[in-house]
Simulated assay, not measured.
Amino acid sequence: MIFGAILAGGTGTRMGNIEKPKQFLLLGDKPIIIHTIEKFYINNSFEKIIVLCPKNWIKYTEDLINKYITNSDSLNNSDKIEVIEGGNLRNETIMNAISYIETNYKLTDEDIIVTHDSVRPFITHRILTENIKYAAEYDACDTVIPATDTIVETKDNKFISNIPNRKNMFQGQTPQSFKINKIKTLYNKISDKEKHMLTDACKIFSINNKKVFLIEGEVTNIKITYPHDLKVANSILKGY
């Protein structure tokens, strides 16, 4: 089975003085998160879509989904989406999704979870399809685009310590997709200290010396983090 996990646990502090988390801001005539969920919802590969958000925003998220998606669906697939509480950290949120899956489904070693930022609303069908395909083949995959700028490394935030070859550098996007039993096993192997230091789910594989397959992303698959990003996203939306 294929599960989607849309990570909406952030509060959007970098977006500035806003009254609600950034995933609920309007992009065009719909909230950002709705654009994202729709891309998963119309993809028939997904058995279940799990949306993970702060506890006090669960009812609000459910109401948005009912308003924009399930109430307008003539096929009445309202049970395809479930909204649950996320964790304090990104990987805790993913593990909450996995716990939900374990509780409600009989897991096999072939089951896959496709994790995606709720504020990347321009995810394409091609990227989703390739994530599913290569997670099945390689256990884990990450969506990336080639770095276009020179990458500069510093160890003290004052002076350059290294300038790696740009040909070997990529910028990470999402989705990141995994065989569920595999990521759970590897996550349980790492220490609590490592768990709290991790900001990227693929790191769970790399620190366990496991390979992660790279999938080509798209420059339009942007993450809306700052006010400028929302302006860019509205421009992209107009061009669709």
Rank of each mutant, 00 (worst) to 15 (best):
C53Y: 00
C53R: 00
K55H: 13
K55P: 00
N56W: 05
W57H: 14
I58E: 05
I58V: 15
K59I: 13
K59M: 06
K59S: 12
K59F: 05
Y60G: 00
Y60K: 03
T61A: 13
T61C: 12
E62C: 11
E62I: 05
E62Q: 15
D63F: 12
L64M: 14
L64G: 02
L64I: 05
I65P: 02
I65K: 08
I65V: 15
K67E: 14
Y68I: 04
Y68D: 03
I69E: 09
T70V: 15
N71Y: 07
N71I: 02
N71W: 08
D73F: 08
D73A: 09
D73C: 01
L75F: 14
L75H: 07
L75D: 11
L75R: 11
N76M: 11
N77E: 14
S78C: 09
S78T: 05
S78N: 15
D79Q: 14
D79G: 04
D79M: 03
K80V: 07
I81E: 07
I81V: 13
I81C: 05
I81R: 02
E82D: 15
E82I: 15
V83C: 12
V83A: 05
V83K: 00
V83S: 07
I84N: 14
E85N: 12
E85S: 15
E85M: 10
R90P: 04
R90N: 14
R90H: 12
N91P: 06
E92I: 01
T93Y: 13
T93K: 00
I94A: 10
I94T: 06
M95V: 05
N96S: 11
N96W: 02
N96C: 13
N96P: 07
N96A: 09
A97D: 04
A97R: 00
I98T: 01
I98C: 01
I98Q: 01
S99M: 07
S99Y: 09
